[in-house]
Amino acid sequence: MELNDIIKPENKVYAEPKLLNRVHMHYCPGCSHGVVHKLVAQVIEEMGVAEKTVGVSPVGCAVFAYNYIDVDWEEAPHGRATALATAVKRLWPENLVFTYQGDGDFSAIGTCESIHACNRGENIVIIFINNAIYGMTGGQMAPTTLLGQKTATCPYGRRPDLNGYPLAITPLLAQLDGTCYVTRQSVHTPANVRKAKAALKKAFENSINCKGTSVVEIVSACNTGWKLTPEKANKWMEENMFAKYPLGDLKDLKDGIQR
């Protein structure tokens, strides 16, 4: 068999998403952001909704998401993404509107906006990357940092008497009447990547069909912040993060929220 016999359209098993820009990403090798970006681009492309998609990017490592996924974006001030997304979705109710936020952005400075947007049942998708640390600013403690976990601002490990407890915000949001779909996923194995993709698709459909707020938490690795190799970081995540932040659906209202 010749090479040209193999390279045929019918034999193609994978192509990079067209909505993923061909630029060099600034993320560290081993970071989960790249995979999640790819999934977001893939799902938007497969759903054929690029023309009516608006993303809201955060402050933090993913601030440059707008350089990587080729849809319309708004860059929000630190923590304010869900408020901004609310405005976009209310002005363009047909649109797919999503925010892409890290734990510092979503569950520290943005807690107020995050909870109220979910409680209002805004028809947006929140993609919440939880890696238990502030990545871009140099690995400081986040609300989601685990007990005992060492960071630049808790170098001897997080202590409950000094720093309080890790904040599992997703279960809180699941209790609110405004959320229709709340799920926790990861992207560290091919099987998990497939599940995360299905979750994103369901969430995006919810936004377009105005079923309420969807929250897709991705428990992620920050191997640089955690000071581990990518492989060890994934392992550490499985052993420690999943205990505090177990994967799976927390809420899934098939018909959307009651209005």
Binding site: H26, C28, P29, G135, M136, G138, T224, G225
Partner: peptide, 8 residues
Amino acid sequence: YGPEQRGG
């Protein structure tokens, strides 16, 4: 240097 933690 730039904002990235690695490379650049």
